[in-house]
Computed example of a mutant assay.
Amino acid sequence: MPLRHTVLVTLSAAALGGCSLLGSEPAPTVTALATVTAEPETVAVPRPTVTVTQTPAQDPEHDRPLWLGQVPLPVGEDGLGARGDTPADLEDRQLAPRAWLPDPPDDEWFAEISMEVPADVAVRSSWDRNCPVHIDDLAYVTMPYWGFDERVHTGEMIVHEDHIEDVATAFEQIFAAGFPIEEMRVISREERDSPTTGDHNITSAFTCRLVVGASTVWSEHAYGKAVDINPFHNPYFKGEELFPELSEAYLDREREREGMIDEASVVYTAFTGIGWGWGGHWTGREDWMHFSVTGQ
């Protein structure tokens, strides 16, 4: 049966008029209904603490180790944690996602797009008034992805409104090919600012942050114009810098494992097909997880 591609775009009345690194309770169901744009005063205070519970997979092979994300690393002047060997459990990492949005009822493709970031999503994101992009310029999408547990899960992403449909198109191709993704969700400010544990593996787009290892340069992620996919399987590597810091085993790109990206990957084909550049082509450093509008 061919996959269906449904993109539901909701616009506010103002728009139609031509105007402008998670809780113990399950996260609320996301809908694609238009919502009131979160103003800076709304999203700045107060901010809830966001945590995610560890949920066992149906198949023990894909259970998440209880220590995952729990052991902070010593941090250097570059803001990165101390580089270390990959734990044996993560050398061929195939973990189920943490409980987040409800799984879809079937394995049909969908992309539900809101051209305004819902207020509740904005509050639990990393956006604030100091970010280089206004919340009004960002959009929100929910879409399915295949997990390493061979089940379909619901993912979410904040992307710049000019590129939201292209990103959904790329992920439709990735989904059709059955490429596995560990998690796809919005990263909160609390997660971004928490002590690094070196085992991060969240597929995401917008995160209000600086370039890895930089102190003054905004990342393309801070504009919603970049996507990182399976960071642990596809780390950033420059000299002695490695992120995630415990992904040493995945520097061996000759040893092909599920979730890795190279030029033969459907992920590479999908994102270069919409004109985005790949960090795996950078000179003097590699960022195999990273695709962006500008190639930076």
Rank of each mutant, 00 (worst) to 15 (best):
residue 42 T to A: 13
residue 225 K to H: 07
residue 66 L to H: 04
residue 197 T to N: 03
residue 194 S to D: 13
residue 43 V to N: 02
residue 269 T to I: 01
residue 197 T to Q: 11
residue 82 A to D: 14
residue 161 E to S: 13
residue 157 M to A: 10
residue 200 H to C: 05
residue 118 P to L: 09
residue 194 S to F: 08
residue 173 Q to I: 00
residue 289 M to Y: 00
residue 151 R to L: 15
residue 23 G to C: 05
residue 260 M to I: 04
residue 113 I to T: 13
residue 35 T to I: 00
residue 121 V to K: 05
residue 268 Y to W: 09
residue 160 H to Q: 11
residue 151 R to I: 12
residue 208 C to T: 10
residue 18 G to C: 06
residue 177 A to T: 01
residue 174 I to M: 00
residue 15 A to K: 08
residue 283 T to K: 06
residue 284 G to H: 06
residue 128 D to H: 12
residue 289 M to H: 01
residue 261 I to T: 01
residue 201 N to D: 15
residue 174 I to Q: 00
residue 109 W to P: 01
residue 189 R to V: 06
residue 142 T to R: 10
residue 281 H to E: 14
residue 107 D to Y: 02
residue 157 M to K: 03
residue 213 G to N: 13
residue 163 H to S: 06
residue 296 Q to W: 02
residue 103 D to N: 14
residue 185 R to E: 08
residue 178 G to E: 07
residue 165 E to N: 03
residue 215 S to E: 15
residue 229 I to P: 03
residue 189 R to T: 13
residue 129 R to G: 02
residue 228 D to F: 01
residue 219 S to A: 15
residue 68 L to I: 11
residue 251 L to C: 05
residue 220 E to R: 09
residue 135 I to C: 14
residue 1 M to S: 09
residue 273 G to D: 05
residue 43 V to H: 00
residue 263 E to V: 08
residue 36 V to A: 09
residue 172 E to R: 15
residue 290 H to N: 06
residue 78 D to Q: 08
residue 259 G to R: 04
residue 143 M to R: 04
residue 262 D to F: 04
